[in-house]
Structures are given as structure tokens and as C-alpha cells.
Amino acid sequence: MARFNIVTGLATSLIVASAAADSWPKRGLAANDDIPIWQFGGSWNGYSSEVNWQYNWDSTTSQKQSFAEYVPMLWGTSSDHTTQWFDNAWYWLDNGGSGHLLAFNEPEQSSQSNLTPQQAADAWRTYMEPFVGHAQLGAPAVSNDGYEWLSEFLQACSDCNIDFVPIHWYNDHTLESDLENWVNSICSLSGRQVWLTEFQAYGTVDDQSNFLRSAIPFLDDNDCVYRYAYFGTADNSEVLLENGGPSLSPLGVQYTFSAYGSGDGPN
């Protein structure tokens, strides 16, 4: 059993067990390699971790966890990403237990991978299509400003073998219904399963905790949603960790150990 240094007093300190735990949890971690994530496995007070996948916006990692599938990502089309892509992706598919691949981070934004829908479709055929039959393949991951971009990409890549659609969501903690509408709109647009690979509610720790009380059950119970990762184990957001880790924060405990379909964490 992993050991945790838990800070008590969070508003959502009591766990509520779901009637039946799902056999394939959806929760994951978007974690840079310098962020310690090993305590997100194991169990706490009799509740098993719901975290079973990880990614790091890169195509290889130095901190693969035994409890999680590592999912390589081709962040963008610059040579520092593409020159190592095939070697790394094949390594993790053949030797690392990976079964999924992610492509192109927020291409609709100039500060991110910055691709037009047509450029992304052309690159997807070059760098993702060769893995058809070897892995489940994700579309480019747009944030919640990217509906039109994604719609154009899916048209430009209508001949592509895309298995799932990753998306992001960032908004105020009072707008949980907006998250639900965003996810459902992409499910309807693409007709594919959705991965919510980044999402975060802006607000205090208690605000975010209350947000997760509603968001986690929605995501767990939505058949269109295959996986999700709260944004809290990245270099610019460590809200799931206590003082930079490795101990989990109360919010991290809530996210990790709330039973499937429940947004409440153990005390």
C-alpha cells in the first residue's frame, strides 16, 4: 500500500462508495517527467486508485508507472518531435504495453502546435496512419475554443482511421454544465469516443473540489467518454500534489480514490 501525507480539512473529505465499481477506470495523469506521480497508484482506506493511464506531451517517458498505461504523443510537426516519433512510438507499442497514440496539442492555438486543419490532416496521414491496426489513434486535441477547427479537420481527414477524439476544457468552477455541454457536443460531432486529456476548473481548492464532485460522476457515467485527466500534475499546475509531491494533496486524493461514479474522496 502506498503511503500518503494527507492534509485534512478539505470540504469534500468524506468518501461515497458507488454501487458498483467499473472494471476499467477512466482517470489518468497529464504529467511532465519532473513531476513525481508514483503515489497515484495503490489504495487508500480500502479504496483502490482509479488512475490507470498517463501521458507527458512527449513520445517517451522516464517515469512509466506500473499501474498506468503510458500513451505517447506527437505534440507537433517540428523536427524535434517528428524525428524521434516513429522509434519512440513503436518502442512503446512493442515493448512498453502501450495501445494508444495521441497527436498534435491544441493546433488551433498559435502558441501551441499551431496547424491549420489541412496541415494537421496531411501530417496525421504521414505520422499517425502508419500505426493503423497496431494502436488506437487519436485526433488532434483541441481546447474548448476549437470546435470549428476540429470540424474542419474531421472533414479534411475524412479518409483517416481516427479511433477517438481528445479534447481539453478550461473554465470557471461554476460552469460544470459547460463542461458537460462541450463533451457532449464533441461526441455528437465526431461520432467517436472522447478523451478529455486536459481539464481544469478555475477557482480555489475548495471550488475545484466541489467542481469534481459533479464532473467525475458525469465523466465516469458517460459512455462516450473513454478517458480523462485533470490538469494538476504539470509544471505549471500541481494542484493534485502537496508542495510539489510526491505526497498527494487532498484534491489529489479526491481525484484518485473517489470510487467510480463518485466525486468524493477519502479523508
Rank of each mutant, 00 (worst) to 15 (best):
H100V: 10
D207H: 14
D34H: 11
P166T: 06
S49H: 13
Q136R: 03
S62V: 15
L154Q: 01
V205N: 02
L212Q: 08
P266L: 06
G96E: 01
Q254M: 05
V205P: 02
D235Q: 12
G41F: 09
P107M: 09
D264N: 12
V132S: 09
W182Q: 03
D223C: 13
G96S: 05
A103V: 10
Q254C: 07
S188W: 04
A30Q: 05
F153L: 09
N171E: 03
A31M: 10
P130V: 10
S18Y: 07
Q254A: 06
S209T: 13
T204A: 03
A31S: 15
I216V: 09
S18E: 01
A215R: 07
N184E: 12
N222R: 04
N5Q: 15
T60G: 02
G99I: 09
T197V: 13
S143K: 03
I162E: 03
N45M: 08
I167T: 04
L196G: 01
L14S: 13
E242R: 11
A19T: 13
W75I: 07
S43N: 14
D220R: 07
L101W: 11
A139Q: 06
Q136T: 10
I37W: 06
A89Q: 00
P130I: 06
G97F: 11
T174K: 07
S62L: 12
D80C: 11
F257K: 02
N105L: 05
N181H: 12
L102Y: 07
W85Y: 01
Y255D: 00
N56M: 13
W182D: 01
C160D: 04
Y70T: 09
C157V: 01
Y226T: 09
R27E: 02
N161K: 15
S258G: 08
G265R: 11
V183R: 04
G252W: 11
N32A: 12
S258F: 04
D33C: 08
T116Y: 10
Q84E: 06
